[in-house]
């Protein structure tokens, strides 16, 4: 499913003294099949944006009580908001939002804190019972087994255990299984690796790639870690002050080091190293993944003859 947003604007508690603009006209298109990264500081609007993708937050016109405001004379109408996920029009209140939610899976930060059931099986099956009440017991069992297996857990060993007795890493995997069990086409994750140790982080990123290959067509993840973005994404969007400042491939994006720094954002280590080497007259043109960077450096090195 293709995701398309135009002029997306959102205000928290619009009629109170604490009214804050979280989004001020976001334009962003994410194609089907992408492994898309979202970058930005806390408060940049990135979380507000991703919560729109499965209608946890709604555009005003999609609210049940919405009545279009009458314009005064001479007033120009606000720009038309467009928000589409596949064929679902998220600005229309007649859209089946529940069905949409089964198609767009959402993994929140620290998802292990949403576990609640007596055993792992029940917890993972929760989404199926809500979205697909027509499924038979056998079908549910098979779906839960598939979901737990793909996140790297042993179904037979873990299904009857209490989710609260598991280790931190296992809990997070169970929580992810509980979201992907409905086979969403788009999977959105808010800082999936937060709070994990380096090895745990590496494993979670590997899991996301596996899910992208075998399970969900599109993966969108929010991250603060620029190395994580450069190593993994097809494209990434930079959010700042409620708007999308840049959308590009990591390769093009991280060439804008100065502009990113102005937004208070960092660049991956490989980009910093590239800049240092450029000052020394060594020009390396890589896509900023560690592997490609090292290859390009070695290639540069080998292209020179040994000095006698």
């Amino acid at each position: 499913m293709r995701i398309q947003a135009e002029n997306l604007t959102f205000t928290y508690s619009p009629s109170s003294p604490f009214a804050t603009y979280a989004l001020k006209g976001v334009f962003l298109t994410i194609e089907e099949g992408e492994f898309f990264g979202i970058i930005g500081h806390t408060g940049s609007g990135k979380s507000t944006f991703v919560q729109h993708l499965n209608a946890l937050l709604k555009v005003p016109s999609a609210e049940k009580k919405y009545k279009p405001k009458k314009l005064k004379k001479g007033e120009t109408p606000p720009p038309q908001i467009v928000l589409k996920v596949g064929d679902y029009d998220l600005t229309d209140k007649k859209t089946d939002f529940k069905e949409l939610r089964s198609k767009v899976g959402m993994v929140f930060q620290y998802p292990e804190y949403q576990l609640f059931a007596e055993n792992v099986f029940e917890d993972v099956a929760f989404g199926l019972k809500n979205f697909r009440p027509e499924m038979t017991k056998e079908e549910v069992e098979r779906a839960v087994e598939d979901a737990l297996t793909i996140v790297g857990l042993d179904y037979a060993e873990i299904k009857d255990r209490s989710p609260f007795d598991l280790s931190g890493g296992q809990k997070r995997r169970v929580a992810i299984a509980g979201v992907i069990v409905t086979k969403p086409e788009v999977l959105v994750l808010d800082e999936p690796a937060a709070g994990l140790d380096p090895l745990g982080k590496k494993e979670i990123m590997e899991l996301l790639h596996k899910l992208h290959r075998e399970w969900c067509k599109t993966v969108i993840f929010v991250s603060h870690d620029m190395d994580e973005i450069s190593e993994n994404c097809t494209r990434a969007a930079v959010f700042s002050e409620g708007q999308v400042k840049f959308v590009d491939t990591p390769k093009n994006l991280f060439q804008r080091e100065d502009e990113l720094r102005q937004l208070g954002l960092d660049v991956p280590l490989t980009a910093k190293l590239t800049a240092l080497l450029r000052e020394k007259g060594i020009v390396i043109d890589s896509d900023y993944t560690q592997r490609d960077f090292c290859e390009k450096v070695l290639q540069y090195y080998r292209e020179r003859e040994e000095q006698v």
Partner: peptide
Amino acid sequence: NAQKARGAD
């Protein structure tokens, strides 16, 4: 929100 995303009503 997390449970709503999993279809809770």
